[in-house]
Each structure stands twice: as structure tokens, then as C-alpha cells.
Write a protein that binds this DNA or RNA. Structure first.
Lengths: 205, 205, 205, 205
DNA sequence: CATGAATGAGACTTCATTCAT
DNA sequence: TATGAATGAAGTCTCATTCAT
């Protein structure tokens, strides 16, 4: 990308990190496409251009790479919400606009929600994974709940259900729509979230 | 349940039907618990009390039994909606009450939505299955959309999004919440659906 | 082998038993040749002329087939000793002759002792297997000890060490010599056992 | 152990030798515990506190380190026997006492015999290793045979079997008892060897 | 010299499916 | 119809070994 690139040999650490990155990308793609259970380590490694042994040099098991994806998912979600929570001084209209922006980002990567769903599904089936997942989930839910609570407070209204329940509902909506794989879903999710949000505001007192 | 039961030998057809029924029940349970990919035919057969051969006497493949589950799912959903659509002469308040009743049935069987999710997931991954699934889905979506449309018409309002979009949203909401497996979700789904529905009405013009 | 053989199709049970027998034979051969750890299930199955799956239709694991070999080893050893213990009325000279006969049987199958050694080695390394092995071992040791005790009693002498210790020593001798794989060991083991036994008698009081 | 230790930086050669020594110790321990096949190079290296690469800097293969263990085993055995063979002028009673001392050393290190067994087992399976092993074995056997021969000559008796056969028998006895891993074997081996030896003497003419 | 990431082969095991009984 | 032994492919994972650093 730089105009003048000095092609140099990668250091060992860089090389390892690159391999790891390739494997993670391949794993994410295959988990999304075939599901966690349907993605084999052989496929992941081949897809990334490495041997199966390379996978096990970087991850201790298939669940281990899913955990890494969970961590990154969490970080990315936290980053997304930072913009929503940063500026407390903004007006309700601004908040709504930012929420709309946030809601629409949920569509940019169609795979995003599917990964979220795979994480949830695996958490239902693996006790150890569930423990890690729960932390991430609770944090994310309470953050979104906080935003919702703040919005209604600024509007001088009370939420028609507990903020954390509404947060769960919006996340559920986004995940459920992702499952449907409608062709024009690209833009749908964000729009419906706003429709529902406006409805909640309209019906609040 | 009858007070006097006449135990008679089953006819060959009845016996076959019973075997099939047992297999279907076992398959549903395991698909919900372990996912489609995580449920083996050996497990399904053993769980039902039969051999693997019995499975293949009744179904041509693993996907075949999933198709049967899809058909039954469709039928059950159609039955549920019958009550909502039957009496066109009812008042809006009655419709809302009936919708509430319908929404709450989504909770009665926690497995219900998980099966729905497994069906959707498999439809994303199997082209042949997707075709069958699409028909069922479209029919169900348009039926719910019809109910929503009717409701708003009776209220003299216009929907804040296309009825079929709102139908998809409500189904997504229910599926997404099922994924969350919250302990108190038993009652949550129906309640949130009504909160959102009232919001839509409040914000409509 | 019979003069008139009616070649008939095997029943299912017979067929299964035959497969099982073939697998056991192959396993025994490979365990003896390559050791328990050095014999792979793939090799065992191929060697027997079946697929790996056939192995798992008949045994739950590699250790399972070793357990079966242990059981058969035990049975065969018990049979061998039956002749030694049956007739209590015999004279010491007869007993010695029978012991000599028994000692020489240890050579007939060169593989016999190596299997015994593999069983012992695996018992050192697998706790669950060790439990099963210990029973067999104790029984065998006390039986041989009984024979030794009886022999010395008939001779009116006392053993120069506890009978069970001497039993352990004779078994150890036979196993240790098997390990050496000397070309002329075929006849050596039995002869040395008798040399030592005569020595014990000569030195007893 | 010295009261004043001058800690100095190891030379390159010393450092390398130390690494090698650590690896050898770890290998010996793991071969004894898990068997040659059951010990992985990764385990050996990690157990010694080094990387796998360090192993290959010091040994060309897994068999190479086993060969080194064989050499050391041989040297140690030769040292043990030196005391037995040194003083040809001693009386038979002294020889017996020294033999008893030697026999009891076989117990001091319970691992000693197990390593011997692993070496023998591997010699049965690797042709190249067998060649090296045979030399060591023959030398050791003839040395022990020489001691036995000498003992009987001094007693003015003839051995009830060839001296080298008796040597093989005593080594077999010791290996076979090691396999049994009886809890009180610590003292048993040496004692039984002496019991058998006295028996041989008593029955000789 | 020592590191450890990466390899390719092969370990044990499970799977959906077939077919003789 | 139902059985379950057997198959062949594929699954997760470990191994001895190599080689760029």
C-alpha cells in the first residue's frame, strides 16, 4: 500500500503472527460458512495454505481458535460501541443518528452476525466455552442497555421494558435476521432496528 | 389416557409408523440438543431404541429426517396461525390479545425455536434443502405479514415498514432470543414481541 | 481338514465371530512383533483383512483387544496347569516329569512369552488394565506356587524361599529368556527351569 | 558437594555437554516410564528444559539417544563386574559374598532393569540397533559366565549347564522380576539369585 | 548451539451409509 | 421390516524430523 515498499524478510515472530492470522481468517470464514461443527481443522489449515500441524502449532484445539475469534469479536464490538458512549453531551437526535449508524454497521459484514450465532450455538454446547462467552455477552448487553437507558433518560421518558431486555431484543433481532439470509438483508437489519426503536420511543411515557 | 384401553397387536403399517415416530422424536431431540451436524444417526437410532438399519428403512438419509421435521414444523406453525386468521370480524383489541397468546406459545416449547434455527442453518448449507425450506418460510412469512397488515388496517393506520418485513423481524426476534438461552427467557420472548408491536402501533400514522 | 466338507454360508454370528477371531490373531501377532505401542489399529485391521471400522465394530479400543488377549492367555495358562494339579496321588518323580513337560511347553510358542511381557508392560502403564492384569497374575502365581509347595512336601523337604516367590522367579526366568531371543532358546528355557528346580531341591533340607 | 564452589561460566563445550547430559537423563527417565515408543522427543526435550531443536543438535535421531544409553549401560555393567573379576586369588566364600553384593546392586535402581528391558525390546525390532546391542550383550554374558565358571572351578565342581547359559539365566531372572514391579521386589531379586545360585552349587558334582 | 514453527505421515476414533441376513 | 457388521472417508490430534532464524 505504501508508495515505496521495502520487501524484507519477516522476522520469526512476524512470520508466526502472519500464519496465525491466516489461520484465524480461514477459521472465521469456514465457521461462518459451514458452522463450527462443519468446519474441519484440515479444511481450515488447507484453506489458509498450511498443514494441519501448523494449526496445532498455533492453537491447542478447534475450540481454541473459536475462543480467539470470540476475543476479537468482543474487542470489535467494544470499539463499535465506543462512539456511542463517548460523548455524553450530545442531543437525543444526535444519539439516534449515531444509533442508526451503528445499526447499519451490523450489515456491512454479512458474516459478522453469523459468527456471533456460531459463538452462541457453541456456548450452548460446550460448558467451558460458555463460561468465557457469558462474560463477553453480559458486558456487551449491559453496554447496549446503558446506551438505551441514556437515550430514554435524555428524552425524559421511561423504557417500556428493562434496558437490558431491550438490548437483548435488539441483538436477537439482528441475529435472527442474519439467519434468514434474505438477499436484500444487507440494508434491512439496520432499518428495522430503527423502526423498532422509534416505536419504543413513541410508545413510552 | 382413556379409562379402558384395548391393547391389540399393531398392524404392520402401524408398527412401521410407530418406529418412524420414535425415530423422528429422537432426531428432533438430538438436532435441538447437539445440532444437525452434531447428531449422529447411530445416536438417533439408539436413542429411539432401534438399530441404524431401522433408520434407513424409514428415511433415505439424515437430511431426509430433517425434511420430515421441516414438514411437521410447517404444519404446526400453520395450525398456530389458524386461530389468528380465522375470524376476520374481530376487533383490534381481540386481535392483539390473540397475538399475545400466539407470542406466548413461542415460549412453551423451548426446543421449538432451536429446531427452527437448525432448519434455517441447514438451509443455508444445503441447496436442495434450501429449496424446500424456502417454500415453507415464504408461506409462513406472508401469513404473519397478512395478520400484521390486517391489524393495522383495522386500526386505520399504515405499517411503519412492509408487513412482510415486520413479519420477518418478529420471527427473527423470537429466534434470536431462543439462541440466548437466558434462564428467564421462558416468558421474555412473548412479552418483548408485544412491547415491540405496541411500539410499532404507537409510532404508526 | 475334514474328509467331507459341506461348505455352507456362515450365519451372521459365525461370521462375526470369525472376523473377531481374525482380528485377535492379527493383534496378537503384531503386539508380539512390534509391541503394544508399535502396533497400530490400521495395521491390525489390514493384517486381518478388514477395515479399521471392522475393528471398532468388534472392540471398543486398542486396549480392549489386549484385554481379550489377556483373558485368553489366562485361560490357556489355567489349562496348562490343570494337568500339573489334577492328580494329587502321583509320585515326586512323576511330578518332576510333568513339570519338565510343562516347562518345555513354554517354548513351543515363541510368541507366548512375548505376549506375556507385553501384557506386563502395558499393566505398568495403564492403571485400568493393571487392575485386570493383577487378578490374572495373582491367580497364576499362587497356582504355580501351590505346585511347587506340593512337590517339596512330597519330597519331605522345605522350600528355600516362599513358594510364591519361587513361582515368581520361574515366571521371571521364562520371560527374561524370551526377551533374549537367542536362536537356540527354543529348548533352553525348559531345560534351565529344570536345572534350577533340581538345584533348589538339592539345596533344600 | 565441595564446601567452597567457584561458580564460573561454562565453556562452550561444557555447556554443550551439560545440555547433552540433561537430555540423556530425561530420555532415560521417559524410556523407562513410558517405553521407547511411548516417549516423544518433544517430551524428552521439554522434560530436560530444552527445545526439540536442542535434541537434534545433540542426537541425530531418537534411536541415537537410545544408543548412547546403551553405551552407558554397558560401561556401568562393566564397572559392576570389575569387582567380581578383579581378585582371582579370593576364596569361594568371598566370591559368593561378592556375588551377593553384586546381585543386590541390581535392586538399588529399580529403573536399571527396565532400561535393560527397553534396550532388549528395541533390539528385537531394529536391525541396526540389534547389531550394536549384540556386542554389548555377548560381552556381558561371557563375563558373567566367566565368573560363574571360576566359582565352580574353585569349588571343584562342574556347572550343571554351560556357564554362559547360566549367565543368561541370571540376567533373565533379574529382568523378569523387574517386569513384575512387585512392591517388595527391592530386596527380592538379589535374594532369589542367591537362592538359585546356592541350589546350582548344591546340585553340582 | 539452540530455537520452535512448520511439515507430512500416521495415530486413534467416529461417521453416514450399504447389504447380507 | 429391521438388524448390525462392515466399509471408506473423514474427523481430531501427535509424532519424528527439518530448517530458517
Amino acid at each position: 500500500m505504501s508508495t515505496t515498499t521495502v520487501r524484507r524478510r519477516l522476522t520469526r515472530d512476524e512470520s508466526r503472527a502472519q500464519t496465525r492470522e491466516h489461520l484465524i481468517d480461514a477459521a472465521r470464514h469456514l465457521f461462518v460458512t459451514n458452522g463450527y461443527g462443519g468446519a474441519s481443522i484440515r479444511d481450515i489449515a488447507n484453506n489458509a495454505g498450511y498443514s494441519q500441524g501448523a494449526f496445532y502449532s498455533n492453537f491447542s484445539s478447534k475450540e481454541d481458535v473459536l475462543l480467539e475469534l470470540l476475543r476479537r469479536h468482543m474487542d470489535a464490538e467494544a470499539m463499535q460501541l465506543t462512539t456511542l458512549m463517548d460523548d455524553n453531551a450530545q442531543l437525543p437526535e444526535q444519539m439516534l443518528a449515531q444509533l442508526e449508524a451503528w445499526a447499519s454497521t451490523l450489515n456491512h459484514d454479512a458474516d459478522w452476525c453469523m459468527l456471533s450465532i456460531e459463538l452462541q450455538l457453541h456456548a450452548r454446547r460446550s460448558l467451558s466455552f460458555a463460561a468465557d462467552y457469558q462474560k463477553v455477552w453480559d458486558k456487551h448487553q449491559s453496554e447496549i442497555g446503558g446506551v438505551i437507558d441514556l437515550l430514554f433518560k435524555k428524552l425524559g421518558r421511561s423504557t417500556p421494558a428493562e434496558p437490558h431486555e431491550l438490548a437483548a431484543a435488539f441483538m436477537a433481532l439482528s441475529h435472527g435476521l442474519a439467519l434468514q439470509k434474505t438477499t436484500d438483508r444487507q440494508e434491512l437489519t439496520g432499518r428495522l432496528i430503527m423502526v423498532f426503536l422509534r416505536g419504543l420511543i413513541a410508545s413510552s411515557t
